[in-house]
Design a protein around this nucleic acid. Sequence first.
DNA 1: ATAATTGCAAATGCTTTGCTTGTGA
DNA 2: TCACAAGCAAAGCATTTGCAATTAT
Lengths: 135, 135
Amino acid sequence: MNSIEEKCKKKGVRLTDQRKIIAEVMSNSKDHPDVDELHKRVIDVDKKISIATVYRTVKLFEEAGILEKHDFKGGKARYEQSPDEHHDHLIDINSGEIVEFVDKEIEKLQNEVAKKLGYKLVDHKLELYGSKIKK
Amino acid sequence: MNSIEEKCKKKGVRLTDQRKIIAEVMSNSKDHPDVDELHKRVIDVDKKISIATVYRTVKLFEEAGILEKHDFKGGKARYEQSPDEHHDHLIDINSGEIVEFVDKEIEKLQNEVAKKLGYKLVDHKLELYGSKIKK
DNA sequence: ATAATTGCAAATGCTTTGCTTGTGA
DNA sequence: TCACAAGCAAAGCATTTGCAATTAT
């Protein structure tokens, strides 16, 4: 059983065949697929699963904190399994490749900025867009 | 003449009546209106201006570097006049209010992170979401 | 004069939803 | 069993676009 399925059990999310397959595909995905791409991968396992189910499941998983949704440039939502520890993303503007990174110092400063402005930081989005430096 | 109109002249963007009005409305806007809201304000000046024109103009201005587009949570693009010096945004998750801020230290760290990963930083998006601390 | 711009409505692309049938616990 | 989920197609929403009429330079 994959890790997403386990989280579903823990959270009392009913497990259907379709959800199991979507859980499995996302567990095996190391990238950040959009719904269409995810649907394609899911269909390779069971071609009867509709894209509506993928949309519903992905939203369900997100609300359960199992998946994380990203709205990178491009207009389509992209998903990844919720990581154990938070990370941000650097997107290659040429290839679309996504690099994950963590910077504790930036995180700390974000909290300080929010506090200074009179707010409690609830969430944040940091995306870097860059082009590869040729060696 | 407002500052957006001036920028249009400088960049050789043809100035129609509609564009002048949109330029004026955006020049007077201290907030970050979405297209629909902008259209409403524009219509108060000339009720014959269509929303298609607002969409086209806003995109034109963005491509000319005159306006900046933001995709905050909520699904609708929001615009502001391109500021002289870059700033980021803190969005109040309760009221929707937006606070602008600058943090040189964070900017610096972003550059360093990108460089460390082998990228040249081209653009970035930093959005903080928070709730007001009661005094 | 004439290439660009507008308004309108239709089309688009992503996402959601109503409804009927199917199914997991 | 039976509340909930899936499949399908239709609807929604923000945004874009084709086309004929209009306009800025």
